[in-house]
Design a protein around this nucleic acid. Structure first.
Lengths: 108, 108
DNA sequence: CTTTTATTTAGATATTTAGCTAAATATCAT
DNA sequence: ATGATATTTAGCTAAATATCTAAATAAAAG
């Protein structure tokens, strides 16, 4: 949780997460959106990975990053609840199929 | 918004906000909850004030800090919405009367 | 007016962070 | 094997942050 908030403290990293919300992207593609060097972006990815907010998939020579929405959600939810701010509703199974399913198979 | 996330990045500051959620507290009272010096706490308060997450009310020699819940809420809400995480429901007018209303400090 | 209490400001230091360039690694194509 | 491409690791600097002690400010109490 602390790592999540640390990760969210930087605007570049928040923007990366936003970009990844739309679809998985390679490190290079993500980097194109920012005016900083690739190594710098790589460091940002490492922080996000450390916070477990993204996961990576090596495909040949490129690395595809993917948002772990449920982790972001859980952090936001539990923090909000501390304040009674309440009900960040549970991920409503994202439409485009880029959700973050890997969790408990939801006991109905 | 950036300032809010910067402020939330530190566990001491998050805890301060949690404490203030219950009731307004003086700088000194808040400080007692942490193993750091008063000046250090004062600096944390400054960051929180900078982010507009708390407001201060000087009463004689002590300074009462108060949580600005709506600001925290707004930040969390708008960020959540970027991800379609959804509905941090609007502050349901806190029960105990420690909401955010008091804009007028006793102008005597 | 002097002292006490509450808090902040100043000044110093140590740690962390964001950024860079250059080099290493890994994969793919020739 | 060589070269090209994608990304990370290493090593560095500059700036930001967290912390401390000592001093300053402000109000209250004597």
């Amino acid at each position: 949780m602390n790592n999540v908030f640390k990760a969210l403290a930087d605007p570049t990293r928040r923007k990366v997460l936003e970009l990844l919300r739309q679809r998985p992207m390679s490190a290079g593609e993500l980097s194109e959106h920012f005016p900083v060097s690739r190594p710098t972006m790589s460091a940002h990815f490492a922080v996000l990975r450390e916070a477990d907010l993204i996961e990576s998939n090596k495909i040949g020579t490129t690395i595809l990053y993917q948002l772990k929405l449920s982790v972001l959600e859980d952090a936001l939810l539990s923090f909000s609840q501390l304040f009674g701010i309440g009900a960040v509703e549970r991920a409503a199974t994202k439409p485009a199929g880029n959700g973050q399913p890997r969790k408990q198979p939801r006991r109905s």
